[in-house]
Amino acid sequence: MPTALITGITGQDGLYLAELLLSKGYDVHGVIRGQNNPKLDLVRELLPDVRLHNGDLTDMSSLIRALRDSDPDEVYNLGAVSFVAYSWENAPLTTDVTAKGVLNILEAVRLHTGDRPEAIRFYQASSSEMFGKVQEVPQHERTLLWPRSPYGVSKVFGHYMTINYRESYGMHASSGILFNHESPRRGPEFVTRKISEAVARIKLGLQNELVLGNLDAERDWGFAGDYVEAMWLMLQQPRGDDYVIATGETHSIRDFLDEAFGHIGIDDWTPYVRQDPRFMRPAEVDHLIGDASKAREVLGWKPKVSFRELVAMMVDADLAATQQGW
């Protein structure tokens, strides 16, 4: 039975990845920050077979303990301060967790494996936000990185540190440059979930207005459940490498609104949506679209859930959750 350790297991990707690994017969362990973590009960309810370890990406000694106690074959580093807007409000914390935290877990793995650097296969969650002010369309593994937020800069640091440990120490270390991926488990602070929750509440007569920022920003959106499969596939390869994971399709916030409101029978959403400059990014990332041909050719991976199916899934889940909460 292979063993995996996941940081960031309380997040959207961590939950889906843990479910996937359990279905494949893994012994799954997760690092969770704080004894009173508000998501602890959720993880225990959804993943009763996962063993949890108290740890923090900013505390290398806790990571060393988690590695010692779990003795994993694979480590998936999904932990991060992942909300881009918040990274401007607290750039130092974002840097400590999302950048330096990668160095801490890489170094902990290196120390744990000793003279057997290939004994643990390592996955780093890189991000399309690293491309930022995009230098070419679509973006691939060799596209110049030009991050436009403290989050994006932190992800670039972690990405290159993973490459450095692979090249310097012979570690089986891979980075997945994942483009935007959503699900009903997406945090409510993210724009896609903000929209699906609001649309559900508008449908049920509980809300009249949805306030958003830039409606013209374009993203390459996929389903998180599809993307965690790509993470696993990377660590099954004979050597570590970097892969763009994306659908290859771009949609604007307006497109997301069209699909979400259309799903509840509202063709014209303009009476319900208001723009507010407070929700505009200081430096916007305008046109992200990924070229995942390497992942298709090497990993045999391709997305299964379409954009329309993803939006419908999210709206339906929020409709059900809102009705259940009455």
Rank of each mutant, 00 (worst) to 15 (best):
G8S: 07
G8Q: 06
D13V: 05
L17D: 04
L17P: 05
L20V: 04
L21A: 04
Y26L: 01
H29Q: 13
N37V: 04
V43K: 02
R44G: 07
L57Q: 09
L57S: 06
D59K: 11
M60A: 02
M60H: 00
N77D: 05
G79Y: 05
S82R: 06
F83P: 02
V84C: 01
A91V: 02
T94D: 01
T98K: 11
L103A: 07
R110C: 02
L111K: 15
H112A: 14
D115M: 08
A119F: 03
F122K: 06
Y123C: 04
Q124N: 15
A125H: 14
S126C: 10
S127D: 14
M130L: 02
P147Q: 10
S149R: 05
Y160F: 12
T162I: 03
I163M: 14
S174T: 14
I177M: 09
N180I: 00
H181N: 14
P184H: 06
F190M: 09
T192Y: 13
I195E: 00
V199M: 09
R201Q: 14
L204G: 10
L210S: 15
N214S: 15
W221G: 01
A224P: 06
G225N: 08
Y227G: 12
Y227I: 06
Q236L: 09
D241W: 10
Y243G: 02
A246H: 06
T247E: 06
E249W: 10
T250R: 14
L257T: 04
H263Q: 07
I266D: 11
Y272E: 07
P277G: 14
F279L: 14
R281L: 13
P282W: 14
E284W: 09
L288H: 12
G290C: 05
D291G: 10
K294D: 00
A320P: 00
T322Y: 05
